Amino acid sequence: MKKTLILSSALALASLSGTALAADGAHGFVRAEVGNANIEIDNADGDDTAYSVRGGYFFNANIGVEGFYSNFGEDEEDGVSGKITGYGLGVVAKKNFGANNSGFYVDGRAGVVRTKTEVSVTGLGSADDSSTKPYVGVGVGYDFSDAFGLSLNYGYVRADAFGEDVNVQTLTLGGEFRF
């Protein structure tokens, strides 16, 4: 009985808190990003096109959560190909400088990303390795309306692949749709 009362109270408080948060700028979002990735593996680096699809929910105008899939780059040379992708989950903070949460803004995000590094050698086969590490990112942008904004984003991901450190830095242009 005591556990039922505690659970019922916790659920009631959570629903009241959710209602209060939803009253001030709460919304879901989907963002697509495309740009450049600089990938450094054991002091050797290269650049490639990166893209991400992100989605999440802002509990109020400033704090939210996100989940994403990113392709950090693919390369093939002399029969050797490689690809780095990742799935992540994190928190997002945003500050608008215009009236009614519009206009210019800055944001930051942090969380964990599960990266997968795949390598294939013609005639020898392929292998992959995965790791889970923190990620961070910052962005600047402009919200044109309650439903749409554009942003310039920098992200940093660290991974381990086949015993080597992998550092990925991305610079992307994003379009965000809110609902």
Rank of each mutant, 00 (worst) to 15 (best):
K3Q: 14
I6C: 03
L7A: 02
S8A: 15
A12I: 05
L16H: 05
S17L: 14
A20H: 10
D24C: 00
D24Y: 10
R31W: 08
A32N: 05
I41F: 02
N43V: 13
A44V: 02
D47W: 12
Y51H: 15
V53M: 10
R54L: 13
G55T: 14
G56E: 08
Y57F: 08
F59S: 09
N60M: 00
N60F: 03
A61R: 13
N62K: 11
N62C: 03
I63E: 04
I63A: 11
I63P: 05
G64M: 09
V65P: 01
Y69M: 08
F72K: 01
F72E: 02
G73P: 11
V80N: 01
T85L: 06
G86T: 02
Y87L: 14
F104E: 03
Y105F: 15
Y105E: 05
Y105W: 01
G108F: 02
V113F: 15
V113C: 12
R114D: 01
K116Y: 01
V119F: 15
V121G: 13
L124M: 05
G125E: 07
G125S: 07
G125A: 10
D129N: 08
D129L: 04
V140H: 00
S145G: 04
F148A: 13
F148L: 14
Y156W: 14
A159P: 12
E164W: 03
V166D: 00
V166L: 03
V168R: 01
T172N: 03
G174V: 15
G175C: 08
E176W: 04
F177S: 14
